[in-house]
Design a protein around this nucleic acid. Structure first.
Lengths: 338, 338
DNA sequence: GCTGGCACTCGTGCGCGCTGAGTGCCAAGC
DNA sequence: GCTTGGCACTCAGCGCGCACGAGTGCCAGC
């Protein structure tokens, strides 16, 4: 186990390195933090920390920088979450309050998060899986063509075209619309398949084919759209990275374009609390020199989707975590209201 | 007026510079192109081209690089549009054919364009302004709450909540729905305001307030959504720029995040033909070292939106223009079919 | 166990000279 | 009059050597 002072040294190293972006040496450390010991002592502690793998030297005779393991310890034991100040909280609320629809909420959230953390922000659209159906609408566009519109309680709207095997009259359509809504309105997505299972039986033989087609399109929509969308922003902040950056920034931009990668990334994070993935803890190789801070958010108490930021491992963890948590909280509120 | 050969020299300079990314000198030019004259002659021509402002030297005793004006001349007079090969055309069609809805079409288009040109792709969603109404749907969510869903011929769906001044019965709602659709279905957006103007008069006094509210929300949607959305992709290609790049890439990423800037950019371009904006011709400062190649696309013969790519001024104009044109053509087809 | 001292390492910055691609100009040739 | 070969000149880039200094590990003494 590391002594109290060594932990303190680690904390000081992380803080200084995050601030200066330069390897930090023993002398500089004692000057900037009142550790109460001499540089020589700090050197010994540093040697110990290095043996344990918490810090490393880029080359002999340079200062130390934290390793992923070092950041891990820092985040777990040494750093709290820095709460937002009152004016910051007000600003967040003001900024989010003007949103008119779901797209707007997500868009504003991304911009806000990117601005607050000065990093790349990722916001997942509220998931359909955990949502409930508000309404299903069927529109006849042509005798054998129906448009299916699904409206969720999170304000999301999905539409699909259905080509019917046989012409489908307006009355049958109205009938189906009414029956469908009475069964699924207010219900969770997961429950829908069961609830509509026997619906074709209530119809005339000639209409059953069409009803089945419509229903299977509906179920498809539910499944397909579980494959969720997300929005990213603040990519310009990547330029603040190192000065080495073609190599650093490239794979990150590539990862950000692959929604699949990002969704997987968010998916792996814990559903409830805040998750911090540091450097190599990220499964995707391109993100091995970045950290991802994410948290679930949702209307009501329950998380329906996640949001977070992607930044260099050398980031201000307490501040970033504070911002992420605060934004998630307010977005949840906004969604609950609408 | 420049002599034939000088134009040829300019063309050679542009081609070589685009290929090598290095200033091109007189000797190298004569070696790589059979101009039929000696380096000394080329030097004289280069001096003339420089006097006219078509090329410049980064520093004394270096080769020449084209200026914005040089690229302009190249694009206008010297370069054609390089048509796609048959396999490329097939690949484009295959790639776009699998799309299931509008989002998917736009998403695929962006990825395709980014891949083909190896640059940043920008695709505007088909505009509502020039579209026609396919259907308007009204759903009663609560006694005094109506959801308005607007479906366009381009497959776009917009929804708005309407808080009614008074409770609104199902029969009135059905009535309004029917009247509304019979008037506006198939009509152009621009014509809608006139067409619904006198609609409240057809209703009982108690419902008129609500009808007016619904109608004004509809009109708002038409106007608001003229403010269009777009999708971008291929930002990772920015890393292929120069080696100087923090300075180059930063403002470009910032510009790409500002949808307003991009929309303005596309908006300035010609509605019909292909537009190429080179370097400083772009009004937005951050894009002064990039060129934008854009073109309108649409279902039917008519352009309803634009798409294009953003890349370094030093780009392969004929190839890029060919790819942009081909993609626009196929997207138009896809939209027309759906 | 902490501290000051000391020798050592090594990345960084600076100055220097060389090299070579490229230029402008000029006088001669077609 | 345009084209050409020749020639002197320029200058970015590269490699080299050197001094500087921040930082380290180790050790003897408190």
């Amino acid at each position: 186990m590391l002594s109290e002072r060594r932990l303190e040294v680690l904390r000081a190293i992380v803080q200084d390195y995050v601030g200066t972006e330069e390897p930090v040496g023993s002398k500089a450390l004692t000057e900037r933090h009142s550790l109460g010991v001499s540089p020589a002592t700090v050197r010994n502690d540093m040697a110990a920390l290095e043996d344990e793998g918490y810090i490393a030297q880029p080359h002999t005779s340079a200062g130390r920088i934290p390793t992923d393991k070092g950041y891990r310890l820092f985040v777990d034991k040494l750093a709290g979450v820095k709460p937002m100040t009152a004016p910051e909280r007000r600003a967040i609320q003001n900024f989010l309050d003007g949103a008119v629809d779901l797209d707007d909420v997500v868009g504003r959230t991304v911009r806000l998060l990117a601005q607050l953390t000065r990093q790349v922000a990722v916001v997942q659209y509220p998931s359909l899986t955990r949502s409930t159906v508000r309404h299903v609408e069927l529109l006849s566009l042509a005798p054998a063509r129906v448009m299916l519109v699904l409206i969720t309680d999170t304000g999301r709207v999905e539409q699909r075209m259905v080509d019917c095997p046989a012409p489908f009259g307006e009355t049958s359509l109205a009938d189906l619309r009414a029956r469908l809504n009475s069964r699924v309105a207010g219900r969770r997505f997961a429950d829908v398949p069961q609830l509509v299972q026997d619906l074709p039986e209530a119809f005339e033989a000639e209409d059953r084919g069409t009803v089945s087609t419509v229903l299977s399109t509906l179920l498809e929509t539910l499944v397909e759209e579980t494959e969720e969308r997300l929005m990213i922003g603040g990519t310009a902040n990547l330029t603040r990275f190192g000065h080495d950056f073609p190599l650093t920034i490239r794979p990150v931009l590539e990862a950000l374009e692959e929604q699949v990668v990002l969704l997987k990334l968010l998916g792996e994070a814990s559903d409830s609390g805040m998750t911090v993935r540091i450097g190599h803890e990220n499964a995707y190789e391109g993100l091995n020199s970045t950290s991802v801070v994410s948290v679930g958010y949702g209307s009501g108490g329950e998380a329906v989707a996640k949001l977070g930021v992607v930044g260099p491992t050398r980031m201000d963890y307490p501040g970033t975590m504070g911002a992420v948590r605060a934004v998630a909280r307010y977005v949840g509120q906004i969604l609950a209201e609408s």
